[in-house]
Every structure is written in C-alpha cells, then in structure tokens.
Design a protein around this nucleic acid. Sequence first.
DNA 1: AGCAGCATGTAACGAGTTACATGATTCG
DNA 2: CGAATCATGTAACTCGTTACATGCTGCT
Lengths: 192, 192
Amino acid sequence: MIDKKIEGGTFMNSLSYAILAILTRKSQTGYELGKQLETLWASKLSQIYPLLSRLEKKGLVTSEHILQTGKPNKIKYHITETGLETLKQWIKQSPTDPVLRDEFLIKIHSIWLSNAETAVKLLLERLESFEKKLKNANEVIEILETTKKEEITNPQTDAFCSFILYKRRKKIVEEEVEWCRWVLEMFNGSSK
Amino acid sequence: MIDKKIEGGTFMNSLSYAILAILTRKSQTGYELGKQLETLWASKLSQIYPLLSRLEKKGLVTSEHILQTGKPNKIKYHITETGLETLKQWIKQSPTDPVLRDEFLIKIHSIWLSNAETAVKLLLERLESFEKKLKNANEVIEILETTKKEEITNPQTDAFCSFILYKRRKKIVEEEVEWCRWVLEMFNGSSK
DNA sequence: AGCAGCATGTAACGAGTTACATGATTCG
DNA sequence: CGAATCATGTAACTCGTTACATGCTGCT
C-alpha cells in the first residue's frame, strides 16, 4: 500500500531522499550536492545527475538554468511542495539497518597471519586518517557554536540537526582514534 | 602491475577477501559463511555462493562435498596455500576508505522539518537497536576474556584479532547509545 | 498447520563505480 | 605546462538485493 512508485520512473531510493534533505536547506546544483552528500550518503556525480532528472520528472524538484561566463553554465535545483511532503512522510517510517563497508576491518581480522610491521603500518595510517576527520569535525562544531549559538539548542532549526550530527561524528571518530592508539600499544608491548 | 586478475574470471572484490579471511580460521560452508560475514562484510547467500565457485576456479579454495541425512547435503570450503598467500599480499596494501550507508542519519538531518514526537520515536528505536548490539558485544568479549585469557594478548592469534574488533565495536556502539540519550534529553528539555 | 532453520543455487533487477567526453579558468 | 576546479552528462561495468525454486526436519 505504500506508493513508493510515484509517476515518472521507478522507486525512490535512499540517495533520492538524501538529495531532497539537502535541498530543503538550500537550492543548489548537482555539482554542489555531490560535496554536501559526502557526510550523509557518499555518491558520485554520475549517479546524482540522472537522479536529479528523475526527481524533476516526478515533480519533487524544479530546475533553474543559470548562464555563466568564464565557467560552464549550471542548473540549480529547488525542492517543491510535493518534494517536501514526500520527504516528511519518509522520515516517519523506520529507517533500514545501517550498512558499513570497511576493508580495514577485514585486514585487521586477518592481521594475525601477518607480521607486526604490517599491522603497525595499517594502524598508523588509520590513525592519521581519523585524526584528520576529528580535526574537521571539531572545526565545524566550533563554527556552529560561535555563529549559531541560539539555533543549536532549538530542535526546529537546521543548525540544530547539523550540530547533533557533527557531535555524533566527533564522538565516534574519537573512539576510533583512541582504539587505534590502544591496539598500537599492545603491539609495542608485545614486541619488546 | 598488480595482478588482481587471477585465472578463471574477473577481479577479486572485498567480499572475496572477507571470505578468505574467515576461511583461514575454520573451513566451512557457504551457509555458515553467510552468518560469520555479518559483522565483517554483510552480504546475502545469493552473492556468496557464486563467489565461492569463482574462488574455487581460481584455486584459492577447495570444496569438499558432505552428504547428510535428514538435512540437505552441504559443501565445505577450505582455503588453499595460494588463497592464503593472496590474502596476505592483500593485507599489506592500504585499504580503501570506509563507506557508511545509514538512512537514520538522513532522517536526523531533516528532523527539524518534523515534530518532536517523530524525532523521539526515531531516537528511541535507534537506542533500543544499539543497546542490543552493545549487549551482544559485551557477551562475546566476556566469553573471550574467560575462555581465551592467554591468546587475547598475543597478536599472533586469531582470538586477539576477534577480541580487538569486538572491543572497537563495543566502544563505538556505546558512544551511539550515549549520543541517543543526549539528543533525547535535548528534546525533553525543549518541550517542557 | 505454519513457520524457522538447514542448504544451495539462478534470474532479474537496482545501486554504485569507473571510464569517457567536453571545455574554460585558475593556481602552482 | 600540468593539475585542479567548475559543470554536466552517458556508457559500460561491477556490486548487491529481491524474488524464485526445491525440499526435509523440528518447533510451536
């Protein structure tokens, strides 16, 4: 009875909703969406552009052609009333289980077959990459805390939602960093 | 120059390595692999069975037909020397970036458009599901700590690898639980 | 009587990535 | 002078899910 199939194509997938979610905050181009989506639902432009056309055919977004000089012309997308309603309805439904695909975990699972050097190299790389993510999250949180002091405590604002998501990110990334250090210690302890 | 393309089909994907990784610990059937893979690289049996055939053609695993009465016959897979070498070589290479696909995050991103009831329901569901995961991780950790006391401090054992992976899982899931409680408090605080 | 578990597989489809095509500007 | 950024898109592919097919045992 759930009509996922709205006129003009096939079903709505998670990426479609992620696109609508970002467009509620600011109308933007496919190219810009590609960057915004990184933290929410990573995807390539080659997947985003066809989906935007599909969403337009369904009447969930409208497009505005913007001519530019010196740069290629661009197409700005706006969410429609129908699009907003569709998104709101979707939010109410229980989300599917999260899926994590992380080659690092497979490698760690098998690291007992390897030597300490390989393990340490793997862990140091991971540590470095997550320390960068942590720094980035901290920066965004600081900016939100100073420029949106009021909004970030009000659940009815988009800043609040961004804030809590970055706080979550920070917590989880911090744990990963701590964990890497802990495992590295165990390798140092056992080799000496 | 990296010969991902070993005779007998196309490339090796992450799932192929995940299968090899699990088979290093214990020979087992595709059906059993399906369950073991849940925490490492979630996948369906319809993807696992054809991959096992492919791995056999490549000479990375061998199969043993086991006849059963009362239950359907089964095929037990064993990793070969070549399979083990292939896995060891792969571990040395830097893993690709982890990919997380989580509809919950998209919904939270848009929760400012919705009402407090919807948000609280979403968060309570998440909390419950992660509390279950936490309980499960704690149980496995306790078992490992009592039955494999020695191995879990020795990086050359498979128990050590399982142990550190479950410890990681526990930490991250704990943070998610804490975060859910924190956000729920903010909703309770603002509605009164 | 019906459902879950055991056990293997194929077919069809949707989701996602890589490669290709185009072309101007700006930065190092 | 090459690489990165801006900007949109198509084609070909791999990866992953859903549905289908089969059939016996044990639990509720």
